[in-house]
């Protein structure tokens, strides 16, 4: 357990875990530093801290693209990445994001998004 429920980030990790007990990994990441503020993984193969660092780059890249394309009035709210057997979800909230990995056969994408949407509100 790499989180404390005393911090808002830790609480979000705990909330997501309560709602999606079968998740693979979850982390709350600070976009500025690319470091995880709180994380939990149910899979020894997946290190959420590594994932956090790389996904920060994905988020930054997308934000760069948006300002270059002048998509005014639009904000990135989430990014959904489909792999063969997993969904990776990135839910942005201010200067942080929640990163969630679930098994696509066990978890419905719509439910996972909804859980992130409701817990992200408690982050800031």
């Amino acid at each position: 357990m790499a989180y404390s429920t005393n911090s808002p980030a830790g609480k979000v990790v705990q909330d997501v875990l309560n709602d999606l007990p079968g998740l693979v990994a979850v982390a709350v990441v600070d976009i500025t530093s690319g470091m995880a503020l709180a994380s939990h993984s149910n899979s020894p193969a997946l290190n959420p801290e590594t994932a956090a660092a790389y996904n920060t780059e994905v988020v930054k890249q997308k934000q760069k693209a948006m300002s270059a394309l002048k998509l005014s009035g639009e904000n990135i709210e989430d990014i959904l990445i489909t792999l063969t057997n997993q969904f990776h979800l990135i839910k942005l909230a201010g200067n942080k994001f929640i990163y969630l990995v679930v098994n696509s056969r066990e978890t419905n994408l719509a439910i996972a998004r909804e859980v992130l949407r409701s817990t992200a509100a408690n982050l800031n």
Binding site: L80, I81, T84
Partner: peptide
Amino acid sequence: QAMAALALRGERLEDILIPFRKQ
């Protein structure tokens, strides 16, 4: 690169979805 770093076995990138408010 993220996927390579995570060494996700048997996983392939299929798609990326980015829902904006209007697009």
